[in-house]
Amino acid sequence: MTHSSNDNKNSNESWYPSELELQRQKVRSQQSRKRIAIATSSSVLVLGGLVLFIISSPGWELFKQTYFDIEYGIEVLPIVAKGITTNIRLTIIASILITILALLLALARTSKAAALTPFRILATVYVDIFRGVPLLLVILLVGFGVPALGIRGLTGNVLVLGTLAVVLTYSAYVAEVFRSGILSIHPSQRAAARSLGLTQAQAMRYVILPQAIRRVIPPLLNDLVALIKDTGLVSILGVIDAVRAAQIQTSKTFNYTPYIVAAILFLMITIPLTRITDRALQKSIAQQNSQGTT
């Protein structure tokens, strides 16, 4: 046992662990050594066995050449890396637009003001539609449908249209995240704000929303990771992103290594982001626990 609370420092100075405690510590360290040994040996056995199984399979040599040609991978790296800058740019621009649009949608859906009734209906319909249609379909519809309208001044730039499609779909998801955050704030907070004379809008802006946003940061980061990956879908419109760049290379050589290169580049962005998400989630759980029901 460790003495975590040093409330009484004077008596602690003269404290030595008893014979019983020393014995316990000894047994505990034996137990933990044993656990480590078991964990290590089972990991080596299972993972080693898996690797051995794959390497010893009859098609391994061919597989290695087509998917893990390191020299070729290095050769195509600059091309694919250039492609992924498109994904990153798209993600940055889209996430800003998504945040704004989603917040407006969530506010429209949660407001009770009579004047906002049409917006509330529109927001509900919007969310229902764009949450229910596959992103790929939206990209195709916007990417090929909008230029087909032939409206003058409307862009035919596939990158812009692809971004627009992603924004439309993700705003619906993110709006629901914001809305759930707003609804999760205890009604007593609104009552306290209103009792001080704050209007509905002021209570939302200064009391409810700041707490709601803090609470939904982890799921929002989750959506950001999903967004980065889904930007790859705009390649279907002919946008040269990492996926498209890899596809072009592969179609030239029939070697699939560029796909692996693209996958690794995506992972280099998404793995750190997931770690940040985990940490944010832990922090927010700890915060909510310490707040109790107030």
Partner: peptide, 20 residues
Amino acid sequence: VDEARMRMGIVFQSFNLFPH
């Protein structure tokens, strides 16, 4: 309603301070 409430104060059992 807001104007009427402006002229009254209420304190609740559960404090209801704004945690942020």
